[in-house]
Design a protein around this nucleic acid. Structure first.
Lengths: 210, 210
DNA sequence: TTTGCATTTGACCGCTCGGTCAAAACCCTG
DNA sequence: CAGGGTTTTGACCGAGCGGTCAAATGCAAA
């Protein structure tokens, strides 16, 4: 096989066994220790592999990190598309999207953290993150067409930012403001009810405004 | 004068001229280069001072960073308290709080970034950030008493998280999703209108629910 | 002027980082 | 078995980091 570092460019799969081990190790460390604990040495050790192999397969730690982000995003996208494709009126579909979004975040709090962190710090992976987030925005936009005006303070863009803020920030701010049990089952269900209430209130407000 | 590193503990002022220069330099660098560019060397150079002085006055780079955070927070708090203290009914006061919040964020985007970053990365200054954010939550809570139920999905806690999410995230996600001009005067005014609409819709919904 | 303390300096230490690379190990084919 | 490409290793490099500290400087009181 060729040195893998130049054999793929976009979001193609990592097939090689060792490369996958490295990728998994990186993701595990990210979940367990946080992004600042990541280093080629530590990842290699966790994967049971020599440090050089990280660079052999991924070229640089940055590229490795991007592959981890890609994997997260693929799951995120698949999860949302499922909900977007569902049947019913906009209100019902929107509730399903929100549920899917919340489900995903429950199981991937780390993803929420990384994205917020990258955005807030203008980190080195902004290009990737930008591309991803804009695709999600595009989904929301097509879904809200006909419901929201195309410009102004009630445009789909504003709702998208607000809604994803309401969803995502709970997972980062919640534990800080309410204590660690903010991510308990009970608390999460309560938050879910809150988000659904927010969605309904907004939709009512939008209808009323027309 | 005593070695300043142990002369103060909480949020007391930095009076010394050189210490202030260092503090200002740190804040400037934070605004200009981002948090990862911060280093004792770089800050000292920008302040026109030897590196050792940073440790002489602040003990460690961590403590220096905390002082920068403190200063931001003092301004934030002062800004919000002004609005909370205003006259009128809850709706009017809430709009004033939101306006003040938006004004503050416009002028201190860096603060928004740092806080989000610390929270998202469980950074080394979580204790400080937690203390600050909880004080702000306490303000919101007292303001919404009688309007929101004390528990459940429409509690003041949920609204606080949602509202501050809607306010703050625009400054971090906006430029990513809508392009750099998301922070233009025009775009910011539009966002302001959106946030006010959100507040009104929520208050209407809350009244309707009682 | 001398003494003593507070302030200021920057060379220096130990450490970790990302990344390189020559050599070793592995593996398939002739 | 021999040869040759691929994969894997880990010592090594230069750079930057936070932090220390002995020495230099400034300064005010005796």
């Amino acid at each position: 096989m060729q040195s893998a570092s130049d054999s793929e460019q976009t979001s193609s799969e990592v097939t090689n066994e060792r490369a996958l081990a490295i990728l998994d190790a990186a993701e595990e460390m990210l979940e367990a220790e946080g992004v600042e604990a990541l280093s080629a040495r530590a990842i290699a050790q966790r994967a049971g592999v020599a440090k050089g192999l990280v660079f052999y397969y991924f070229g640089s730690t940055q590229e490795l990190f991007e592959r981890v982000l890609e994997r997260y995003y693929e799951r995120h996208k698949a999860s949302l598309e499922r909900a977007f494709a569902s049947e019913g009126d906009t209100r019902g579909r929107l509730h399903r999207v929100v549920d899917e979004y919340l489900d995903f975040m429950e199981e991937n709090v780390t993803y929420a953290r990384i994205v917020q962190q990258q955005i807030a710090s203008a980190g080195p992976h902004m290009g990737l993150v930008t591309r991803h987030l804009r695709q999600v925005l595009a989904m929301t936009r097509t879904m809200l067409v006909g419901i929201t005006p195309s410009r102004g303070p009630r445009s789909a863009e504003h709702f998208h930012i607000s809604l994803s803020a309401v969803v995502i920030n709970y997972f980062t701010y919640g534990p800080v403001l309410l204590g660690e049990d903010a991510l308990d089952r009970r608390a999460l269900d309560e938050r879910r009810a809150h988000v659904h209430w927010v969605v309904d209130t907004w939709l009512d407000g939008l209808e009323h405004h027309r």
